[in-house]
């Protein structure tokens, strides 16, 4: 069985599994890191949103065989550690300050997408405004969208 090495939340990981198994299942079912959630499996709901080398991506739609040993995969569990100084990432703190989460199922993906969207806007010299936030496709079936908007704007100011 093929062996795969990559970096997950700052640590090297190693797993034996067929190449075509999607990374979401490798992370959740084999490595036991359960922050990224399943909501569709077809890159639509964005509940599994994580980062690869600092960019948002959806591991439900990437075969593990496409991941290189040097790739750094970050899930919600590893987000805080990507910030200097320890503690929570400012976006996580903004989420708490705005009491965004309802059931919480979509929120790991929402936060990971929000962080990437802010970075993308910065890189492109754009405002993090309603128009930018409306590019986010993450579903929240509990309907917390309006608090998400507030939190993204607040979190962006601290990033």
């Amino acid at each position: 069985m093929p062996n795969h090495t990559f970096r997950l939340n700052g640590e090297p990981v190693n797993v034996d599994v067929e190449d075509d198994v999607r990374l979401l299942w490798v992370i959740r079912d084999l490595l036991g890191v359960t922050g990224p959630k399943y909501g569709c499996g077809i890159n639509v709901c964005k509940a599994c949103t994580s980062h690869i080398n600092g960019k948002a991506f959806n591991p439900c739609s990437v075969p593990v065989g496409a991941i290189k040993p040097t790739d750094e995969v970050t899930t919600i569990e590893g987000l805080a550690a990507t910030e200097a100084g320890g503690g929570l990432h400012p976006m996580q703190q903004a989420w708490i300050d705005n009491d965004v989460a309802q059931c919480g199922y979509c929120q790991p993906g929402q936060i990971m997408a929000a962080v990437a969207k802010v970075r993308q806007c910065r890189a492109e010299g754009r405002e993090v405004d309603d128009a930018a936030i409306e590019e986010l496709r993450n579903i929240c079936r509990c309907g917390t969208y309006n608090r998400i908007r507030e939190a993204i704007k607040a979190g962006a100011e601290k990033m």
Binding site: G35, T75, L88, W95, I96, V100, A101, G104
Partner: peptide
């Protein structure tokens, strides 16, 4: 559980 929810 706000903290637990934003940290996964």
């Amino acid at each position: 559980d706000a903290l637990a929810m934003v940290t996964g």
